[in-house]
Design a protein around this nucleic acid. Structure first.
Length: 812
RNA sequence: GGGGAAGUGUCGGAACUGGCAGACGAGCAUGAUUUAGGAUCAUGUGCCGAAAGGCGUGGGGGUUCAAAUCCCCCCUUCCCCA
């Protein structure tokens, strides 16, 4: 039976067979080492594009490799199914979010199956299903009971178009909404928060986990720990109870240079402090700054402006009266919402002082400074001056000395500040997990009892084009009774940020059908933590930081025993087309289904891995994928057509090439270097091609070589190899075949090429046995005719010999 | 402005701890074969040069017997943050 390679037919055939046999069903098995290979689950957008393939196909290859190596491999798949687009579809097209989402799931599941991955669909997780979000709510209650969830008022990013709160990460650099681009404004709302800041320091520690350096750096920037000093300025004001205003600074050594103070416009003391003649001006300024986004306020492009409140504080170190200003470059949420301004030594303060003609007092002497006015802020180091008893100290020593001095007198001291803020999880939306909280006039905030979970989303919700949450107006949902006093009460109508759903889905895969707990303890102990987590780098600070926080939080609640969910993280790059990111508007979107239909899933999988290093991302190119197709066709014929041996002696070179190939393919897979792994397999195929023509190995060697090649290629091209495996008369399934091992001794070359350089330039080559000594090499080199013409009448001043590599003669 | 990654043929990309630059694939060229197909096979393909040879990894300098790889300065691109 010799037919042509027909990927369409064989792929369908084997996918059906594998599904029928449950070949990839995975169960806990303590007799095998486990391997948890996780790919970030996709959002239910409706269509599996080439970017999904780029994320999923290579990770499946790696998981299959581990499986063949004898690991019990969990490589699950599911759907991140809550989120705004489903709700927009409901508003625009009148289709219920659940229906829209599940239709998308159907389609994407079908497309996912065409990849030919080892997903065990019995373990599928869909976050919008009640059996899943019941446990999302349960975790909320656990966090609440343990003081890690709280309700608070806070200025939030509000998109007037979507009518919802956005996380900082969801606001574009331009200050627009991530989804609709409308200008985001600031607004105060009662919200639910998770106390992620409690874990700020632990989140900056990545010891013991193998993550890309740049992701760790990005997370640490996001947490933004800054060690500094808090300084109290005394306040004496009849309208205000407080007797001080505290500021945070990393430069307490410049405290004698403070010439004004700046408060955030939202600072709680501003209204009381403002004098009557300044009131109108201040109020106008506050109104103006409310319209600006945080990004705009902090932008270095924007000129710093502000308003004097008419009030003063006193600098305790030198008794100076310091005027209090407000300016929008100071944020309430960072530090104390107040900064001491030292124009001589801070760029922003300098610009501000120049603009409003405020004094500039130098307290750190710049090099060669003669007392003249500064042209610009001096932010470098130097000796303290104009600082009373601290004069003469270096700025470094001054930081210590002043901090200590303040601490002794109770005027402040060393402290730590973070950029990280608590995680705001409330969303004024329908399509998310409802926050399981009830508000009772008598009892206050009452958590929904566990036995009443899940708090279901009402099916009869009405989706208004205004975008307001339908839950708010659903009487049946809102009105309830208090679990404590049985009186009339109202439900929380906000739902949870979908990052909450994705903070624990990897736990659910271990026990997707456990119904009395979110997961089975034994299964968690068996599978977790994830051994290899792969996905896009765009999740560096959001999902990955939240998932780490969540894990640490439930560790402290004693639900799990580990601190880090993902041992090794790997970020794949982005697949582009025609030098650009793919997008519908550019019309350069590559549709994987079309290529799968024509050239096969195996070719698409292989091409995506071959095109470039996975972490780098690559450009889709039609002639590139046809190169893979050609290789498969050649391989097909090579294996199918009979081999005629013209030699009965075993071939040492073949054995060496075979073992070198096994070694390189294995090492490359382990290191996640798929492109070179594939080129190694191509080289071996080409080598077998020349062997076949010559008939230079025995029939037994031929069979062994072909079988090994198929096994090595099996993770990459699972359908093609299964078909050929069967056609050469081997038993089903190649995917249960153990991974080949190599013999290090057999990989070593017996004959080596020594490169001969003269003065560092390559002039000649020498074939020699690997066992050659330096003396022999020198002798052989000097007797070469070509070498003689170069050294001629010159003298050899140096003879460099690098065993098995080269000889370099330095001549004069 | 700060942080990170990267610059290698016509293109995607190889090159282990410094040791033959350009593996593998694409493209192109020539030839073979064929019931003109985006098939298959063979050969060639960094640049200059007739050749000998010389020059070549963004640019400039340095270390070294030897640099794509290490160090310093500069330029460009991309990503993240402000």
């Amino acid at each position: 039976m010799t037919t042509d390679y027909n990927p369409k037919a064989i792929e369908k055939k084997w996918q059906n067979r594998w599904a029928e046999d449950g070949l990839y069903e995975v169960n806990e098995d303590s007799s095998k080492p486990k391997w948890y290979a996780l790919t970030m689950f996709p959002y239910t957008s409706g269509d599996l594009h080439i970017g999904h393939w780029y994320a999923m196909a290579p990770s499946d290859v790696h998981a299959r490799f581990k499986r063949m190596q004898g690991f019990n491999v969990l490589h699950p798949m599911g759907f991140d199914a809550f989120g705004l687009p489903a709700e927009n579809a409901a508003i625009q097209r009148g289709i219920h979010p659940y229906k829209w989402t599940m239709q998308n799931v159907e389609n994407m599941r079908r497309q996912l199956k065409s990849i030919g991955a080892i997903y065990d669909w019995r373990r599928e997780v869909i976050t919008c299903q009640p059996k899943y979000y019941k446990w999302t709510q349960w975790f909320f209650l656990k966090l609440y009971q343990n003081g890690l969830a709280y309700r608070g008022k806070a200025p939030v990013n509000w998109c007037p178009n979507c009518q919802t709160v956005l996380a900082n990460e969801q606001v574009l650099g331009s200050g627009g909404c991530e989804r609709c681009s409308a200008v985001v404004i600031r607004r105060d709302l009662e919200q639910w928060f998770f106390r992620i800041t409690k874990y700020a320091d632990e989140l900056m520690q990545h010891e013991g986990i193998d993550w890309p350096e740049r992701i760790k750096i990005m997370q640490n920037h996001w947490v933004g720990r800054s060690d500094g000093t808090e300084i109290s300025f005394s306040l004496d004001h009849q309208a205000v109870n407080e007797s001080e205003i505290r500021v945070f600074t990393t430069r307490p050594d410049t405290t004698f240079g403070v010439t004004f103070m700046v408060l955030a416009p939202e600072h709680s003391l501003v209204t009381q402090l403002t004098t009557s003649e300044k009131k109108a001006e201040v109020e106008a300024y506050i109104a103006k700054s409310r319209r600006l986004t945080e990004i705009e306020r902090l932008s270095t492009e924007k000129e710093k402006d502000g308003v004097f409140t008419g009030a003063y504080v006193t600098n305790r170190l030198n008794g100076d009266k310091v005027p209090i200003w407000i300016a929008d470059y100071v944020l309430l949420g960072y530090g104390t919402g107040a900064v001491m301004a030292v124009p001589a030594h801070d760029e922003r303060d300098f610009a501000f002082a120049k603009k409003y003609n405020l004094p500039i007092r130098v307290v750190i002497a710049p090099p060669d400074w003669q007392g003249q006015d500064l042209e610009e802020a001096y932010i470098g180091s130097g000796t303290m001056i104009n600082s009373g008893q601290f004069d003469g100290l270096s700025d470094e020593k001054g930081i210590e000395a002043i901090s200590d001095f303040l601490a002794e007198r109770g005027w402040g001291g060393r402290t730590v500040s973070y950029k990280l803020r608590d995680w705001l999880i409330s969303r004024q939306r329908y399509w998310g997990a409802p926050i399981p909280i009830i508000y009772c006039d008598g009892c206050g905030i009452v958590p929904v009892p566990e036995k009443e979970l899940p708090v279901l989303l009402p099916e009869d919700a009405e989706f208004k084009p205004t975008g307001e949450s339908p839950l708010k107006y659903n009487e049946q949902f809102v009105n309830t009774t208090c679990p404590q006093c049985s009186g009339k009460a109202k439900r929380e109508t906000d739902t949870m940020d979908t990052f909450m759903c994705s903070s624990w889905y990897f736990l659910r895969y271990t026990s997707p059908n456990t119904d009395n707990m979110p997961f089975d303890e034994n299964n968690i102990r068996y599978w977790m933590p994830v051994d290899l987590y792969t996905g896009g780098a765009e999740h560096a600070v959001m999902h990955l930081l939240y998932a780490r926080f969540f894990t640490k939080a439930i560790r402290d609640i004693e639900l799990v025993e580990f601190s880090e969910p993902f041992n090794r993280l790997f970020n794949q790059g982005i697949i582009i087309a025609q030098k650009q990111k793919m997008s519908k508007s550019k019309g350069n979107v590559v549709n994987p289904d079309a290529y799968v239909g024509e050239l096969g899933a195996d070719a698409v999988r292989t091409y995506l891995m071959f095109v470039a290093p996975w972490e780098q991302g690559g450009e889709w190119n039609d002639s590139g994928i046809s190169g893979i197709s050609r290789w498969f066709n050649r391989l097909w014929k090579l294996v199918i057509n009979n081999y005629k041996a013209k030699n009965e002696n075993t071939n040492k070179e073949l054995k060496r090439k075979l073992h070198q190939t096994i070694k390189k393919v294995t090492d490359n897979l382990e290191a996640i270097r798929f492109n070179t792994m594939i080129s190694t397999l191509m080289e071996f195929t080409n080598y077998l091609g020349t062997i076949k023509k010559a008939g230079s190995i025995t029939a037994g060697e031929w069979r062994q070589s072909v079988e090994t090649l198929l096994v090595l290629l099996a993770p990459t091209a699972p359908h093609l190899t299964e078909e050929l495996w069967q056609r050469i008369g081997n038993s089903y399934s190649i995917h249960n075949h153990p991974w080949p091992v190599w013999d290090e001794e057999l990989t070593k070359d017996e004959v080596i090429t020594l490169v001969i350089q003269i003065n560092g330039k390559m002039r000649d080559k020498l074939l020699a046995p690997a066992s050659i000594t330096e003396e022999e090499a020198r002798h052989l080199t000097l007797s070469r005719q070509k070498v003689k013409t170069y050294i001629d009448d010159k003298t050899i001043t140096k003879f460099i010999y690098i065993p098995k590599r080269l000889i370099n003669l330095v001549v004069k």
